[in-house]
Design a protein around this nucleic acid. Structure first.
Lengths: 336, 336
DNA sequence: CAGGGCCATCGAAGCGCTTCGACGACCGCT
DNA sequence: AGCGGTCGTCGAAGCGCTTCGATGGCCCTG
């Protein structure tokens, strides 16, 4: 193994000088710096992470707690995780992957053992047991999602209320006067995942604002359940000509069900989805959608975390990412 | 921070004794051990990961390199990753998440800096640039998938050839005499991902063995492309009554295309899929499928890695996980 | 030309842990 | 009773790095 002492010897300086070249914490003359950098390259030196962590009490690693549940839309989870890793690398940090099956113990463990010096928690629920742990741990942390009591916690999420509002506005602008929200299964609401509630609120508020009739349906993504929901909706609310779907996996069966019922999209029914772009692009016609900004969420989370780590003043408690509606072929003016 | 010295003082022993209690590397009397353990609990002691890594030159962390590409089926990637984390925790190891956008540099970096002491690489391609790097790094490693030259590398994967064979056998057993393989887009084969080739080989071999006519089609998962492929297949090969689909995202549009063409499943056409269980369960009728054994792949990879880390003799170079066919409602005897 | 400051560099201490050799105490054997 | 051999424990060294105070030039000023 190449150590800092080897580099120092090779460059004819002391180990501390090499350290200062690396960290930039003290002024080093250009000549010396170049010599040291050349030696580093020549020897292929990489600082020993453990030694560095021990001496500096900074591991340069952040923990990422991913959900174990499978009813979240999975590709998004991975996209966000990737975005976080990429962003973290941009700040010279690595990412340690933690699952929830260790429970909050895992958080305690990595924090107390100084394995990581900050935490990002994904898929936060309204009454998330990890929230109090984060507070008590005293580690810098960022949550993706909002718990019921977000006091003292830094949270990032898509502005779901605004996103639902955006969808309603889009449909209202096209001339629709009655719209329905097809949401996640009832379980998600019960479990209290914040975004479902916020979507609902935003949907209803926007509908009221625009004077549009609003119907709401939770929906299990299973084929039969979707079919039943669609049939129900069509018979009970024939006035509905626009659908806002906030339920990832239900989209393909929903489109199929509409087709099976002889309902043309967008001719008879406009469909707007809140969810991943890939899906929107995969179906025909291409969906009008408000994509989940995975990359931005990950990046913002890391940036906030780094700001906290650097102790650079205050960071905002809540970061709501504004929605972006991408028009597709699935929405149009209603037939009259 | 609570250190080993604090624990030692509290228990009235020397720090080294505490260390030996923790590691079990020397005999400690039951009385002393209990006292020390009580002190550890009382003080809430966790060993400092960096210090431990420095002194023992073992970080107890493994790197997991996940693919950046998005044309792999994503949920499986996450499932495997989760399985790896869980298995690693069972062996007292943590998992560091690495993406490929750092290139093979990332591997070098974490290895040389002793951040990790072993590596698992996912989604290995036939001519994977990471393979030579792993060899030269001299770190214990396990690949998920097979590169063209696997010499000296430990690889784990589903036995795709056997899986395709299993599907053909299933259809042949039901009485089908002409079957088609709907594979991944041509690009995947070109890029040389090993599993596509192995599936193809297994498919053709099994068909020959069973005296069944075999047709092969690569297929882009986009809606229109699938539709075209299906139409083509039906007109050019009306004798085909069984489909083996090895193309995750193409399944829903494929089923829809069949329905649109008035082809009943499984009445007129049996469909067998190689791919994730959730999908098989989500469509109607439930698919007969050979699931990707995500949990087992992750677990086996970790076990092999730990065996290598413990230096416990030789580990097998190749681990092919035998396929398991789960019957569903999408396959039946052909109409005569 | 002396004195004060600053810049660049060095030396040494110490971060918290593991591990090796040493050392009593105690056992069983002759 | 004496001796070798365990067994259980301790002390100290050292892992590779950061960081703080010290130091020696140098320039600028009075």
């Amino acid at each position: 193994m190449v150590t800092i002492a080897d580099v120092a010897r090779h460059a004819g300086v002391s180990p501390s000088t090499v350290s200062y070249v690396l960290s930039g914490k003290r002024a080093i003359s250009a000549r010396t710096r170049e010599r040291v950098e050349a030696s580093i390259r020549a020897l292929g030196y990489h600082p020993h992470a453990g030694a560095r962590a021990l001496a500096s009490s900074r591991a340069n690693v952040i923990a990422l707690v991913v959900p174990l549940r499978t009813d979240m839309h999975v590709p998004i989870v991975l996209q966000i995780a990737m975005a976080i890793v990429t962003a973290a690398r941009g700040h010279d940090h690595d990412v340690l992957l933690l699952t929830n099956d260790e429970g909050t113990e895992g958080l305690h463990r990595v924090a107390r053992s100084a394995l990581v010096d900050a935490v990002i928690v994904m898929d936060v629920e309204l009454h998330d047991p990890r929230a109090p742990v984060l507070r008590e741990l005293g580690l810098p942390s960022v949550l993706l999602g909002f718990p019921a009591d977000a006091a003292g916690l830094t949270c990032v999420d898509l502005d779901f209320a605004a996103a639902a509002g955006r969808c309603v506005d889009h449909l209202a602008d096209l001339g629709h006067t009655a719209v329905a929200l097809v949401g996640p299964p009832a379980g998600v609401l019960d479990r209290g995942t914040g975004f479902a509630r916020r979507t609902l609120a935003g949907f209803e508020r926007a509908a009221a604002r625009r004077g549009v009739r609003a119907v709401v349906r939770p929906c299990d993504p299973a084929h039969e359940a979707v079919q039943a929901t669609v049939k129900e909706l069509l018979t009970e609310h024939p006035e509905v000509t626009g659908l806002v779907v906030h339920n990832e996996p239900a989209v393909p069966p929903l489109l199929e069900a509409l087709r099976a019922q002889g309902v043309a999209v967008p001719g008879d029914m406009s469909v707007v989805a809140m969810g991943p772009e890939e899906l929107a692009a995969q179906v025909s016609p291409r969906l009008t959608a408000v994509p989940i900004p995975a990359e931005e969420m990950g990046r913002r989370a890391v940036e906030l975390l780094m700001a906290k780590l650097d102790g650079a003043g205050e960071v905002p408690d809540a970061t709501l990412i504004p929605p972006r509606l991408v028009p597709g072929g699935s929405s149009a003016a209603p037939r009259r």
